[in-house]
Design a protein around this nucleic acid. Structure first.
Lengths: 122, 122
DNA sequence: ACACAACATATGTATTTGACCTATAGTGCC
DNA sequence: GGCACTATAGGTCAAATACATATGTTGTGT
């Protein structure tokens, strides 16, 4: 999140808590997908602000399934090892809508913060 | 950060990790202040997205001082108990600048995410 | 047929961050 | 003196994230 690269220069990364969750939901809302494919596609929405941990991604998927936000089935039809394909449920779609509202709020907070910084002669 | 208030309705809060840090830095960049005053002013920039923990705020201030990002002195002149007044150092100003850049990036990530959600017919 | 890289899912554990709770002491007021 | 308020501080626990390792399958090259 932050580290001093030289005296007077900081490398800072600002990240939204649990942001992988809405990213996974959005991708699954576009079409069903298996974990490994999410692993490849999630970083596109995170924009290298954070590297995705594969262990935590698989854990997230299983806990979302326990909550009824996604469901899954094994797909052994296609080439390669069997994949567990996840799809968004109606509850998942509702949760995604909730996330969108929350993220809009967060953007408002950021806007206000940055604007206040810019007000002062800098 | 999220909880189901009714079937089909989620209450979600999206928060930037460690956001209290840049908020404290911005407030101290405007003028020196003591911890208890920050405790009152920080929530204005957080916009009730999160409640501020006083224990963690004091810990943050002391760790920022250890890193040379702020410095402090006791002020027993004014009415009321003695206060430790913090002011931003040059290193602190540099760190705040780093945070601003990071927060702009985070806002970009949010914009892209929300835009992608809106593209689909919803 | 075999080695090997890539695909795919999964578990274990440490560290960091944040939430919640309690402690302590000075000051102003009634 | 008792009480609310100001002010700083520490302890502890749960959640979130980072880092590391395990395990089996499939496709490709030789």
């Amino acid at each position: 999140m932050r580290r001093q690269v030289a005296p007077g220069t900081w490398e800072v990364h600002a990240r939204v808590e649990r942001f992988v969750e809405p990213v996974v939901l959005l991708l699954l809302s576009e079409r069903p997908m298996h974990g490994y494919e999410l692993l490849e596609r999630v970083p596109g929405l995170l924009r290298d602000e954070r590297r995705l941990d594969l262990g935590n991604l698989y854990r997230l998927l299983r806990s979302l399934e326990e909550e009824g936000i996604v469901d899954s089935e094994w797909d052994s039809g296609l080439p390669g090892p069997a994949k567990r394909v996840y799809r968004l449920t109606d509850a998942g779609r509702a949760l995604l809508a909730g996330w969108i509202g929350a993220l809009r709020d967060a953007r408002g907070v950021l806007d206000a913060f940055i604007a206040r910084y810019e007000v002062e002669g800098r």
